[in-house]
Design a protein around this nucleic acid. Structure first.
Lengths: 231, 231
DNA sequence: GTACGGCTGATTGCATCCAATCTCAAGCCT
DNA sequence: AGGCTTGAGATTGGATGCAATCAGCCGTAC
């Protein structure tokens, strides 16, 4: 029984996005922690869960493999990718260079209202205290909103992809931050907003680069959250 | 007759890499100009060409869509992606920031022999005159060799992917270079080698960044090689 | 003469089916 | 007793078949 009952969500209309729905579902599970790194991905499971056959499931798995979220071993199966500390630092170094570039595309196009919304987000982040989940949600919302005006294609996609790759580990290390480290992050957010308000794109880029760089250096102090093998 | 005769290349062993072979083949065709931007990709064609069924073909198409090389429209088909000038400049700005980073990973690990080989490559590039094909091949070999010692994963893959994305257009605009522009590129290659010889990674990064930046600015002078639509 | 609706062939999206391979544990040999 | 072999079950890789959709063409109505 791999097909969904036609009564549930229409006459199984063939809109050609089955693979995309499935990929989105798996991706969401990896990002929100439901599927932790190392957990097995079974084609049949997914087919049943999404009311599809294994063909679109395999397309979704292939896509996620190329996004780096899944590791596929021929004839054996697929697992949620694990990351070493070195790999994670590599991602952060890429973000350190790419996100300021993306911000430089977005900043001149942000409206005053959008910058106001960013200021409010920065305030709310400062109020999260030691609620890690709230911080993670708002932090992601803040940075993505700051990039929202960029009319780029590949760069936007890539930055999202890099965020997703480290998502499974972000919760672990953010929860290890000291109150001081958190306070610095909050201040950096406000500094970014201030630079955007001043329409000083270069300064915004500089602060953002430092923000990511500082996070990377803190990351190196919590090596225990990464897999020990495959180093 | 979509399956290959078992006598040709063995008993159709199921090594789980059919999709990879097919993707490599399409990718090669796009890079070498056999499949120009905008050309149609037919699943059945590829299945017949590679002696496979459409299932692995579809997985390959998904991968290439994700790489940005193909554009897929549900229920309609797949085409080799076309690029606007703005998109191409975006890619070059990403390369401007990422390739120096990759070089900074590679440079300290390059052996003296490898740097010697780079010097020889730089010399041969200087000798290509106005032979665009020879220049393109050697230029790619030079840059990739300069990155060869980097022990990075995502960054290496990404840089290769960005090169591939602009490959269909590189021939067009390189052939439009003036002798002067070519000479400057040759000199930059030699400057990179010199910096690597000096073990001055920062200088090598700086020259490489300028090299890519200069290329991007020349690119903007030949907008006619890009598709006019989808701007 | 032009616009609209239906038909046909080509192509894609997906389900189903079978074979190859892996996992893992039980049994055999040394 | 311990290592190697072997079988069954689970799982993946790939082929085939069918329905949905699309592009292009023709005929008809106005």
């Amino acid at each position: 029984m791999t097909t969904a009952p036609p009564t549930l969500d229409g006459p199984r209309s063939r809109d050609g996005d089955a693979h995309a729905r499935i990929a989105d579902g798996i991706r969401r599970g990896i990002i929100d922690g439901t599927r932790p790194p190392g957990s097995r991905i079974l084609q049949e499971d997914l087919a049943a869960r999404y009311g599809a056959s294994r063909v679109p499931v395999r397309e979704a798995i292939r896509q996620l493999e190329y996004e780096g979220l899944l590791t596929v071993v021929p004839n054996a199966g697929a697992w949620v990718s694990t990351m070493t500390l070195a790999e994670c630092e590599e991602i952060y170094r890429m973000r350190e260079r790419l996100e300021p570039l993306l911000l430089s595309y977005s900043a001149p196009r942000l409206t005053d209202d959008e910058i106001g919304a960013l200021a409010e987000l920065a305030d709310r982040i400062s109020d999260t205290g030691d609620d890690t989940d709230a911080f993670l949600d708002l932090d992601a919302a803040f940075h993505h909103a700051s990039y929202a005006a960029a009319e780029t294609t590949h760069l936007t996609d890539l930055v999202v992809r890099l965020w997703n790759l480290t998502a499974p580990y972000r919760r672990s290390y953010v929860s290890s931050w000291t109150p001081d480290a958190r306070r610095i992050a909050h201040e950096e957010h406000h500094l970014i907003v201030a630079a955007l308000r001043d329409r000083d794109t270069e300064e915004a880029e500089r602060v953002l680069g430092g923000h990511i760089r500082r996070t990377r250096r803190q990351l190196a102090r919590t090596p225990e959250i990464f897999s020990l093998s495959a180093g």
